[in-house]
Amino acid sequence: MNAGPQATLQGNQRAGYRYSGIPSSGPADLISHAIANRLVGNHASESGIEITYGPFSAEFRAPAAIALAGAVAPTSLNGRMASFHETVFVKQGDFLEVGRPDHGLRTYLAISGGIVGDEFLESGSTYLPAGLGGFGGRALRSGDVVETSPGTEMALGRERTPDALKFPLGNSFALRASEGPDYTGGGVPLWTEQYKATRRASRIGIELDGAFPEIDAIANLPSAGIFPGALQLPPQGRGFLLLPDCQTTGGYPHILQVNRSDRHLLGQIRPGDSVMFLHRTREQAAGDLMKKQELIASWIHGFRL
């Protein structure tokens, strides 16, 4: 394969170990990953390839069912256009090429059977900063060969993602969010301001440029548990929105939290995109989450965000 700027194996989230300093990792866009898996008959927890802003290409050494979801990019199989959001059957020697997406940042490639990676604490997801899980703890490189689990039966029928589950991606994101523990409410109108994602963007977090409230004693908060979706405000005055590989504790003011219902979108924000936050109460947020979860679960049995 040719892996492009950054492609990693991601499967289920590594849940329940944050007290040891181990973040969840897993797909930055949880829904797209689950959709790709569903199209090839895999459980949502199976590992697939998270492709960050193509180009990516791979030759198949064995027949398989594959599927692509997430940021839609020009894609071809043996030179012919290939579609996203449907099951594609490949033969030995077939060649898949995924280009750069027009919108969004991460494309998910699932392969029937799931890709075998290093299991660490019940998850095969890659955590790059510590080199754990996935493909020897590292990003995929050109020339790597990955294997699927042996003995798995290929999905028989061709499946398509229902339209209601395809989240359109553009250059602006409106994310539903709730107040964080260090929210002050004063000064800058956090809920109407438009922010811009800077070039500092990784699986750890995305930096946002724009007007933020001024917070006293900015660097002096005692370290406390934080989670993906948190918007932190470091002293240099730019917001930092946390993604699945973020640290488990942090001492910067945590001013708002992107709600669980919309956290999957964080994985699709690319440098230059604009970001707005929509104010939700915690009760509204729980309702939003249930609604989205039910929608996805109507097609992906048992799906949870």
Binding site: A15, G225, I226, R282, L289
Partner: peptide, 21 residues
Amino acid sequence: DEVVIGRESVTVQFDPSALGP
């Protein structure tokens, strides 16, 4: 889901679709 000890705190995470706020 998660219980994280901080310098002066303990933070818990839960699933709001299973356990309301």
